[in-house]
C-alpha cells in the first residue's frame, strides 16, 4: 500500500510563507482562503521565550472526520491516503468544515479577487466556478500526484510530481513521500527524528508529521 504523507521539519522552518504563496499561485485560491499557511506560535515567558513556525494544511487523515460526516459523498479518499472533494457533488453544507479539527476546509460563496470584482490575468487562468458555494481544501496538488502514475516519477523526489509547497520551501523544511515505503525519504526522516502529529488524540490519524529533534 501507499500512504502519502508530508513531513515538516520544524527546526528548519523560518516562517517565510513561501509555501503559502506557492500554494496560492498553484491552486488559485481567492483572497482570504489559504489552503496552506504557517502559524507563528510564541511560547514561554520572558526571558525564556521561543518562537515556532508551524506550517498547516489539510492533514489528509487516515480516519478523516470530514469524510465521515459528509452527507453527499463529495468527500472521498484515494487509495494512497489523499482526501479529495468532488465539487460537482458537494452541496456546500460546510459540515466537513465543522468536523475538521484542523480548520482546513473553506467555503466561498461569491467570486472575489485580489483587486476587486475583476480577476487579474493570472487569477482568470486559475479561476474555477465549480469551487463557488462548495467546500475546498488542500489536495496535496493531486493533479501532480496523479501524473506520477503515468510518468513513473516519484512524488517527493521528482519536482514535477511533488506538491507546490514542498517544491517551493527555501529551507528544505517540507518533505513529501510514501510513509509505507521503508526506503522513502519520509520514512527515513521519521525513523531518525523525534516527531509528533497535530491533535492525534482525536483519532484522525493525520498525514502530516512534525519533526522536532534528532532521535539519538
Amino acid at each position: 500500500m501507499t500512504r502519502y504523507v508530508m513531513v515538516v521539519d520544524l527546526r528548519r522552518c523560518t516562517g517565510c510563507q513561501t509555501c503559502t504563496a506557492a500554494c496560492k499561485q498553484a491552486n488559485g485560491t481567492p483572497p482570504g482562503v489559504q489552503w496552506r499557511r504557517v502559524l507563528d506560535i510564541e511560547t514561554g515567558v520572558f526571558p525564556n521565550v521561543r518562537r515556532s513556525f508551524v506550517p498547516v494544511s489539510c492533514m489528509h487523515c487516515g480516519s478523516p472526520p470530514c469524510l465521515e460526516v459528509c452527507p453527499t459523498g463529495a468527500t472521498y479518499k484515494h487509495d494512497d491516503g489523499r482526501v479529495g472533494i468532488n465539487y460537482d457533488a458537494c452541496i456546500g453544507c460546510a459540515y466537513c468544515a465543522i468536523a475538521c479539527p484542523y480548520q482546513q476546509r473553506f467555503k466561498v460563496q461569491r467570486a472575489h479577487f485580489a483587486y476587486g470584482s475583476d480577476p487579474t490575468d493570472a487569477e482568470a487562468i486559475k479561476f474555477d466556478p465549480a469551487r463557488l458555494g462548495v467546500s475546498t481544501k488542500c489536495t496535496f496538488c493531486s493533479d501532480r500526484i496523479d501524473r506520477a502514475r503515468e510518468t513513473g516519477q516519484v512524488p517527493g523526489i521528482d519536482p514535477e510530481v511533488t506538491p507546490a509547497c514542498v517544491n517551493s520551501c527555501i529551507c528544505s523544511a517540507l518533505h513529501f513521500g510514501d510513509r509505507d515505503d521503508p526506503e522513502s525519504n519520509v520514512s527515513k526522516l521519521l525513523r531518525e527524528n523525534r516527531h509528533f502529529r497535530m491533535h492525534e488524540e482525536l483519532g484522525t490519524d493525520p498525514g502530516i508529521y512534525y519533526l522536532t529533534a534528532t532521535d539519538n
Partner: peptide, 28 residues
C-alpha cells in the same frame, strides 16, 4: 433554514447519498 444555508441549494437532494456514515444524511 438549512436550504438557505447551503452553498448549492439546487443540489440539496445529494444530501441523501451517505446514510451509511453521515447523520445529516440519516436526518434527511
Amino acid at each position: 433554514c438549512v436550504w438557505f444555508e447551503i452553498g448549492r441549494p439546487w443540489r440539496a437532494l445529494n444530501v441523501l447519498r451517505r446514510p451509511g456514515t453521515s447523520w445529516m444524511s440519516r436526518e434527511a
